[in-house]
Simulated scan of single mutants.
Amino acid sequence: MSDLTGKFFWYELMTSDPEAAIRFYGDVAGWTAQPFGGERTDDPYHVVSGSAGPLGGIMRIPAEARDCGMTPWWGGYIGSADVDADARRLAEAGGSVKRAPEDIPGVGRFAVMGDPGGAVFMLLKGSSPDGMDAAPPMANGHVGWHELYSGDFDKDLAFYTSQFGWGRGQAMDMGEMGSYQLFSMSGATGFDEMSGGMMPRPKEMPEPAWLFYFAVPDIDAALEKVKAGGGTVLNGPVEVPGGAWIIQATDPQGAMFALVGMRPAAA
């Protein structure tokens, strides 16, 4: 099993309409979904899987969170060997504890954190001794790229590299938009080993946030499925280094997500 400590490995959609979201992403990203643990409640947590196995979950926004103004949102979990110790350490390093560590019965222990710039992520240590393997690069339906729209670029870059051991890759000059800093969650520095990039939050983003890019085999076909399913394409397709293409979009309930994939060669 892969060592997922310090790496994003689970992705969770909190939404106003789980069933509609399952249908939408099932068509766009090719996911399958099943209730967690086989539970058949009126409102189960659904585990979603891509071509290489489970990758995340979809759940309804809890009433108390909805009442506090939470809107549909994708969040990511970073593996932790000790959630309580990591939460303290990250807070001392300039992060913040948004929700103190607590147990999820049958799942593990988690905490909700903020980085120095304000973007939210979660820590998780599973309760099972059986881990999970990381998906192969660009496996269909799985996260192929992680992007941080940073609220404090210099502090956030130092935070993730020092606290999680992420490697710094190339920094790309984007002119007035600042630098786009490539990073690797494995600590590597080679271009082909990069896991994502971070950049100063553009004015179009209402707040600092992580954005996750789900891999699809055909970016143009996926774009049409987004539109046909009631989603909104915000940007793209745009070609990126390496020959892949990306789009950023919102799903029908309003959660922002992104896709990465190739354009099939012309026959």
Rank of each mutant, 00 (worst) to 15 (best):
F121R: 00
D156G: 08
V112W: 00
Y149D: 07
A228H: 09
P137W: 11
F24A: 05
Y213C: 09
S195G: 04
Y77I: 06
A29I: 09
M262F: 04
W245A: 03
M174G: 07
C68G: 14
L182A: 12
S80Y: 03
E239Y: 06
A215L: 05
D67P: 02
T32D: 13
P208T: 07
V226P: 10
I219T: 02
G57F: 10
W145C: 05
G53K: 03
Q163E: 15
G53T: 05
A93I: 05
L259H: 06
R201Y: 02
R88H: 12
M256D: 12
D27M: 09
W31A: 02
D84A: 15
G108C: 07
F159T: 11
D251A: 14
V240S: 09
N140W: 02
E19L: 13
G229Y: 08
G6V: 04
D86W: 03
D220Y: 06
E224Q: 14
E207D: 09
P200S: 08
L234N: 15
K7T: 10
P208C: 07
P202W: 04
G236N: 10
Q248E: 14
T41N: 06
G126C: 12
G117V: 01
K155F: 07
D152C: 12
V233F: 06
L148Y: 04
E224F: 08
A87E: 02
P208V: 02
P241W: 05
P136S: 08
D42Y: 01
A158Y: 10
P200T: 04
K227E: 15
Y180H: 11
F110R: 01
R60M: 12
Q170D: 14
G53E: 07
H46F: 15
I246P: 06
E239F: 04
E176S: 15
R109T: 13
G76P: 03
K225E: 10
N235T: 13
Q163D: 10
L234P: 06
D43I: 02
Q181P: 03
D42E: 15
Q170Y: 10
